[in-house]
Amino acid sequence: MKARFSTVLFAVYSVFVVASLVFGFQPGKDIGNNFLAFTLSMLKILPGAFILIGLFQVWVSRKRVEKHLGEESSFLGFLWVLLLAGTTVGGLYIAFPVAYALYEKGARIQVVLAYLGFAAVSRIPMMIFEASFMGVKFTFVRLAVSIPLVVVSAVILGRYLKASNWKMTSPQ
């Protein structure tokens, strides 16, 4: 049902873009160009990211993930995912499948949520860019405030989700 909805939506969208090309409707042409440009820039990263996720799935044991990031893991778990997030490429849309892979291997929800937050605010390549245009002070303040808040919010949200009997949905 839901899959059908997005198929219909995409069909309508495609017809609109193609019709715009044929009849020279500028807004539709612009939207089509935006779609192509973003698809191309995403396709540069997605295949590599999914290959890494596949390698992670076969090489890293569930036991190891559980030990460092699972229910029994210490505060160090947050540090590990901060490091992982620092090297995450692309945007949040890459972090979602990575976070899901961690969860599937037994990472606790607090750590998974923290990873998502860190991947948003502390990707190293992005920060180098930020600091060079906005100044080191700006970047430093942003990190110093957001990193503790990410941890706090991840812990609170994790507890809330667990208490409300939440379950992770499967993408397939």
């Binding site: 198929t7 995409f10 995403m42 295949p47 596949g54 397939q172």
Partner: peptide
């Protein structure tokens, strides 16, 4: 097997990605 997993996951999430791109 890793490559198979990568492909399966990639195609599995593709509709959501397309919706995002739209």
């Amino acid at each position: 097997k890793a490559l198979k997993i990568a492909w399966k996951r990639f195609t599995g999430i593709l509709p959501a990605f397309v919706l995002m791109l739209v």
